[in-house]
Every structure is written in C-alpha cells, then in structure tokens.
Write a protein that binds this DNA or RNA. Structure first.
Lengths: 239, 239
DNA sequence: ACCTGAACACCGTTCAAGT
DNA sequence: ACCTGAACACCGTTCAAGT
C-alpha cells in the first residue's frame, strides 16, 4: 500500500476537552440531541471513542459541558446594553435584557431547554442557577422588593423565563426545517375553531389571536405580567 | 393448585393498545424515561416486539399515548373541588386547582415534563394545549380580563404553570431514591454562601430563604404574582 | 500521558413465518 | 387479524494494546 496522502482526514491539532465540547455543540445545533452520538463525534474529530473518553467521563458530562459553554456566553453581562431612558426604569430594562438573552439563546440552541432543567435540579449549586438568580435578583432588589420576598419574587421570575423559553424552544427543536411557521399557525387555528362549541368556547374564541401572535412579544408580555404582579404584591418598603 | 399460579409468565388477556399504554406508564413511573424499552415492555407483557408494533406505530407514539392517558385524568374537571368562600374569588380558586392538579401530576410522573413540551409545539392542535388553555382561559374571562388580552394573559399563565412545574419535576426525575431533600437543600445553601462575595451578593443573601423554601408554596406564590399582574395590567372593562 | 480500534451489551425496528 | 422471535443497524462504553 502506498504511503497515503498526508493526513487529509487526520486532525491538525491535538484533542482537548475544549475541542470536543465545541464539536459537540456544533452537532447539537445542526442535528439536535439525537444527532450527537459518539460515532458522529469521533468522525468529525477524526479519532476513536477511547480518545474522547480520555477527556470526558461520559455522555452526560459532555452534555453538561456543552450546556455550560453556551450558557456562559449568554449570561456574561454586557454593560450598558439596556440604555434605559431614565434610571427609574433601569431594573426592568435589565431584567428584559437578561430574559431576552436567555430566550434567544435557548431559541438558537433548542437542546438547551432539557439540559437546563436537568442541571437546575440535579446540581443546583452549579453555575446555571446562581448565575441566573444573581442576574435577576439584583434587579429585583433594585426594584425595592422587601428582602423577605427576594427569593420568592426572583424564583418566580426565573421559573417563568426558563419555563416559557423552554416551552417555546420545543417549537424549533423538532420542527422540520422546511416547516413554515405561518402554515402551522394557520392549521392550528383552524383546528381550534373546529373544536366542540360546548366544550371549548374559550379556545375557539382565541383561535384568531393565536394565529397572529408573536412568540417573542408574548414572552415579554408575560414577563411584564410577572413584574407587574411583583410591583403590586411586594411594593417597596416604606421608609 | 390455585388458579393463581397457572401461567405465571403468560398473559391472561389479549394484548390491546390500552394494556400496552398502561404498562408503559408503569415502567415510566417506576424507572423513568430510560426505564421504558421494548425489552422491558415485552417482558412485562410476556410477548415479543412484533406484537407491540402491531398496536403502536413506534416508541414516539407510545410515549404520546402515555402522556395523553395521564394528562386526561389530571385535566378532567372535578366540579366543586374549589369550594371558594365567596363567588367573587371563584376564578382564582379554580385556577389554583387546575395549576395544583398539573403540578402534582407532573411531580408524580416527572417524565411528563419533557413530553408536554414536545407535544405543545410539535402538535399544538392535540389535546394538551386546548385542554389546558380552555380550563385556564374560562377563569381568565371570568376575572373580567378584556377579550383583547385573553390569549396573552392565558398563555402567560399556562407557560408559568407548565414551565415551573416542569422545572420542579426535574428534581424528582433524576434524584436517587434515597436522596434526602433536606440534605440537598443544606448542601446547596452552603455552596451558595461560599460563592464570591463580590460576584454573588444576592445569591448569598437568599441562601437561607432557599434552604427553607417549600416547592409547592413557592409555585403558588409565583402563580399569584402572575394573577396579580393580570389584575393590575388588564383590569375589567368599564361598563 | 494520550490515543487506537475491536469488542460488548443494549437499543428501536423489521419481517418472514406462524396461528 | 394478531402474534412470534430471529435478525439488523445503531447506540454508549470498555479495555488491551500501542506510541
């Protein structure tokens, strides 16, 4: 056998945990959670499974590392991004910015939703929970919420944001690439209108509002409801 | 010998879609999503994989059927369960009842969380979305929210309820049976207190509130924040 | 220390064959 | 019409062996 063209399929740099995680994120983004296997990963990295297991304990740890890598970028504060008109509105603007950052990140990496849920509870001391809590909680404090209600108010915000963003991401998660959002909304709206009039009067009534809704705008409207509730129930302490 | 011992490994009744779904739910409850395989299922039903594929198209359809079966029970209205002191408070009490029903159901069947998210978006015309929307939306209308905001208000409620319940369920989903909740909260609280004082002042400040919190009570407190926000932002139309 | 690649146990699914 | 069970392609993981 001839001495082969010099490593056309051979990787240029040494393997490292970072390179493995990077390739994992790419596979997850392009093919979803089912697209990341040790076969596709070893093929892309031009190596064998044993090499990956040298740097990573198992698939779960790899998914956790991928989650951390993507979320770290999303949660890195970008000072001044809010540029609120007046300072009084700064906390609300900052909460919007954090929420939209998470919403858009989860929308762009839909596989994140399931992983965040797993991490939040499996290891609540790890980076995700404290980072999100800290970013939101400081603004909750700035809004004047009495300290006794800090945890409750911030938890509710965090649950709404991560929950709603996660449910929304399921859209992108499994929808075929050529699936037209408008067509899905049309079909769903039509199906709702054909529900039994006696059993589903409300759903029939909102079928048109559903058809024309904007995911991002609805997400923000819901966020503002939570914020309005916080303002109403936990008004700033007198002084 | 008593008729009991006869055909210990042979099933008594003919296979049916219902019996298969029933067995699937039991396996999911006892061993989680990873515990349901065609091997464990055929063993429990004393049959082969081909028999199951005669009644069910594939594993995805089986999981959808299991989800529908469990949610149908949770969403069946139980009239009079709320028994509010006065009628004015009836909508809020009913929303609490629906929310707690979903919270407890998802808590008891943690595998539901991921499946609900998938169904909500993959096929929003199917039973889950209209049923939840209808149950919540009627009460939103009863609260006097103007019709123009019905969809937004009800969507926010639904996203909070399903999102928060789903994130909470991740707790039960992977925690080892002998894991003591109190011990986890203690360890998490301690870890939070050891975070960098400059970077995590808020998280450190709420570490004690987190340690003593009650999941169900926090869930309801967050729900009340959304409801308070709805009352504040979408007050009943004048007449 | 880092990597190779064959091998193992297990998975969802198919299908020719039975009744 | 309904069920059997061997077989297939694929998965995560291991490990003796190389450098």
């Amino acid at each position: 056998m001839a001495p082969r063209t010099r490593r056309t399929e051979r990787r240029a740099e040494a393997l490292s945990r970072e390179r493995i995680v990077e390739a994992a994120v790419e596979l997850l983004d392009s093919a979803g959670e089912r697209g990341l296997t040790f076969r596709t990963l070893t093929e892309r990295l031009a190596t064998g499974p044993g090499a990956i297991y040298w740097h990573v304990a198992n698939k779960g740890e790899l998914l956790d590392a991928a989650t951390d890598a993507v979320l770290a970028a999303a949660l890195t504060p970008t000072p001044g991004r809010a540029d609120a008109a007046d300072a009084a509105d700064a906390p609300r603007a900052e909460i919007h910015a954090v929420a939209l950052g998470l919403f858009d990140t989860i929308d762009a990496h839909p596989w994140l939703a399931g992983r965040i849920a797993a991490q939040l509870s499996l290891s609540p001391w790890r980076s995700v929970a404290p980072r999100v809590l800290e970013a939101l909680g400081r603004q909750v404090a700035a809004l004047g919420v009495p300290e006794a209600h800090w945890f409750t108010a911030t938890s509710a915000l965090m649950h709404y944001i991560l929950g709603a963003a996660g449910l929304n991401a399921a859209n992108a998660r499994t929808a075929a690439p050529e699936t037209d959002r408008g067509a899905v909304l049309d079909a769903t709206s039509r199906a709702w209108k054909e529900l039994d009039a006696g059993a589903y009067p409300f759903t029939r009534a909102v079928a048109d509002q559903m058809r024309t809704h904007d995911d991002r705008a609805e997400f923000l409207a819901g966020l503002d409801l939570v914020l309005a509730g916080i303002a109403a129930r936990y008004p700033p302490a007198e002084r």
